[in-house]
Design a binder for these strands. Structure first.
Lengths: 149, 149
DNA sequence: TACAAATAATTAGTAAAACAATCATTACAT
DNA sequence: ATGTAATGATTGTTTTACTAATTATTTGTA
């Protein structure tokens, strides 16, 4: 691994990861807005996770969405205001809430879902299964490296 | 491309891109803090770009760092406060500033640089040149797809 | 039982990102 | 030459990220 690589390819790689990540969020947000959905991409990620696994506590939700606790608190606040989610008291542990989709939230997930599927199709168009697998593996490899630092 | 793929691999891919991007920034920020540098990762990105090409206007700087104009305005404000950068009036076009590294900023880039190289080595350890090239290509492919939406 | 440690969630402060709107200056078009 | 459009930068607002500190509750231990 020579210096050229460090200054060229690898330098770009970090930039390219962040750039694609940002652009995905930008375009996805644009689609949500165009289709008339009054949520952010990060709020969508939380709703989608609740749709897969309803009634999680906030820390579990934070872990599964890779956000931290204060961020989840605020996203839940906003989703509660919008009526898509509610905090249910947990009698077994009064420190903890169960975060649950409301009927309205459940309907929203059903309405938004197809647009997200469509978005993903366009985003990954032209990449074959092997390329997607390699991409995933490399990203996971980098992630694991980082966690070991 | 079947539905399973859309719900599994491709779904994860977007998440994995964002997760690696966030983790890179987190770890890099931690290193900057540990080493006693009083700047954020985003401020570092701007300093590094100025080091490569000093005296750019803010819009050029925004494009080369993939940030928008208001964000650059605020980052430059902070870097000016810290004395690492200055806004030089451009007599040819009084709308425009030349953003220049100060001596202090130049020294900072020299001091931080080696730590960033070291960080990148660790982040990409175990990936060979072909894997890095594939990663780059896939990320660029996705980015291009997104720009066509 | 009582006290300390751990856990779940919240709050506060700063930084960054997105978007829209605004202001000053410059370029262009009649 | 004047008016309009385009450009560079700033400001305002909302959301998210990170850190640190705080509160309430539960767990573990002496």
């Amino acid at each position: 691994m020579n210096t050229d690589v460090l200054l060229d390819v690898e330098h770009m790689t970090g930039f390219l990861i962040e750039r694609s990540s940002k652009r995905m969020k930008q375009v996805c947000q644009q689609i949500l807005k165009e289709k008339g959905f009054n949520i952010t991409v990060d709020q969508w990620v939380v709703l989608q996770e609740l749709n897969k696994n309803d009634g999680q506590g906030q820390i579990a939700l934070a872990n599964s969405t890779f956000k931290d606790a204060p961020t989840i608190t605020r996203i839940i606040d906003l989703l509660c205001q919008k009526g898509y989610v509610e905090r249910i008291n947990n009698p077994d542990d009064r420190r903890r809430f169960k975060i649950c989709l409301t009927q309205s939230g459940d309907n929203l997930v059903s309405d938004v879902g197809p647009h997200i599927i469509e978005f993903r199709k366009k985003a990954y168009a032209g990449l074959n299964q092997a390329q997607l697998t390699n991409l995933k593996q490399s990203l996971n490899h980098i992630f694991d490296n980082l966690n070991a630092i």
